[in-house]
Design a binder for these strands. Sequence first.
DNA 1: ATGAAAGCGCTAACAG
DNA 2: CTGTTAGCGCTTTCAT
Lengths: 335, 335
Amino acid sequence: MGVTINDVAKAAGVSASTVSRVLSDSPRISKKTKMKVRKVIEELEYYPNFIARSLASNSTNTIGLVLCTEAHYLIHNSFFIQAMTGISTYAQENGYNVMYAFNKNEEEDLNIAIKYVSSKSVDGIILFASRVNDKCISYLKKEGFPFSVIGRPDETDGVLWVDNDNFQATYQVTDYLIRDGHTNIAFIGGPAGFNVSKDRFEGFKRSMYVHGLDINESFIFLDGDFSSEFGYECMKKLLENESQSLPTAVVTCDDMQALGVLNALSEKGIDNIAVTGFNNNLLPGINRGAKFTSVDVNAYKLGYYAAKVLIDNILGKEGTPTHYIVPTSLAENKL
Amino acid sequence: MGVTINDVAKAAGVSASTVSRVLSDSPRISKKTKMKVRKVIEELEYYPNFIARSLASNSTNTIGLVLCTEAHYLIHNSFFIQAMTGISTYAQENGYNVMYAFNKNEEEDLNIAIKYVSSKSVDGIILFASRVNDKCISYLKKEGFPFSVIGRPDETDGVLWVDNDNFQATYQVTDYLIRDGHTNIAFIGGPAGFNVSKDRFEGFKRSMYVHGLDINESFIFLDGDFSSEFGYECMKKLLENESQSLPTAVVTCDDMQALGVLNALSEKGIDNIAVTGFNNNLLPGINRGAKFTSVDVNAYKLGYYAAKVLIDNILGKEGTPTHYIVPTSLAENKL
DNA sequence: ATGAAAGCGCTAACAG
DNA sequence: CTGTTAGCGCTTTCAT
């Protein structure tokens, strides 16, 4: 069982190293020999042993994914699977395998990273989402191990990363609302201490500013989380504040938040307030007619480029950028 | 860079083979030596090289996932990611890595399987969903390569698999509706040629039969697909058929089908027909008040047990079953 | 209970 | 352009 490089060499009347060179298409082998060897490879249905190859060449042609997330979060968020598909695509295009491991917290994440690095099972690592003071990032930097990050890290110096332009994203969606005639716009932001939260808020403010619109402080909700509960609460507060009129539009930073807002509105029978979300995850069709705009972060591409920036770097390709900005787009849905 | 087994051996004053035996906790090594070696391992922060280990032991401790799906399908279906999480969990518990590759069709699936097997990159394979006359299954059987399948295959002989009891699932949900007072129930089935479609229909029929209810032939829609479009069309037909009254409940085989049905109903302003789905994927909350029942297939557990049945088998554990039936449950949601 | 030695299947200097 | 010779880091008989 299992035909080896030696079997091929013997059958083709050459040495094993010649076969090895044919496999890597070395320019120092004559066309004739290549043809001959390739024919034998076909006939014998020879496949190089992946493991032996890795050991000898000191590279695994595999990248590892460190995914930190609560299981329940996955159910209604296609971000991960889409990004994983993008990663798989670029990896396959370049002959790389992809390993993954789901973890529950930062410590487990770090342990997996350490395991990947120390046992030399992968050539590079992709981190999903960067924390403030991310331990995995510090570790990998210290080790000098190749890795890329989805989501711009605190300190971009010497790290490979991909991200959306979050500033641009909320700028765009706010601009869209304003052009649609809205002037009283509320904003519901993401959790404290994340760059993504900060950037999205800045984009919102900028767009308001550029259009010469005032920001009503009581329309701004920061430092919450991405849950529908938070969205619901914020909208409740807006509805209960009788000292002033309601906004005509609400910019949120996540579809779940938007869902909470929509719920709060639907309880009051209000359907003339525009709501926007992030991630383009909501199912179309449940409530025909309700228009809903979401910022599509293009998770597939984020994954694809996270793999690209990492693999290109590992392969030492010339002139590879250290990061990619994946554009967002506005998605119109009917809910 | 990289401390090897020899460094440990030297530092501990033993041979490399002794260190190797300590690593695998061989009973033939004295407690004393074990302690001594382990201490050195700690001090030197030695991690066995995964690749070298694989080559020498002729096993990779890695399993490969063959995932066939259209990208767009992933966006609103958390089945894959949940199953992958379950797989990752059992794999990690047993020291296995997991590789995955997304493919677009059966041919690509087969190619990946062949690559995994021939290049010896994995010890076993998990197939997502079995086709009629599945080429991957035939291939893996022919090769005698360990694999497990999520979804009962045509021919279960000598294959490891996990699945829900699909018969039981529709039996249960139909029973639930009948106990709720429904007697005129429509059924929208899955694609032709899949066991899952057949079983689900049988479960529905059985429940109706047990309760002494007649099945109205014009209420039955088979051999469609799992899309919302199909659900929409079927409901349309029911609504347009003026020669008879409407059902009071509709059992569908997928949440997307259910969504299509709900859309068709909402267009007519009908909200008193119960609709049930499968997979428990729909977002709660959009339309407060609309009750929606879905069969939760427990994708996490399907993945977990697919990994278990495979890994236990590879490890040659005694008395491992050849398959697992993962129970479904009814999930009540508000849409 | 431990060590010596062979070898897993391949790559990569080094020769020629 | 091709062959020879060493390993890569570990496991595993076979001795002792």
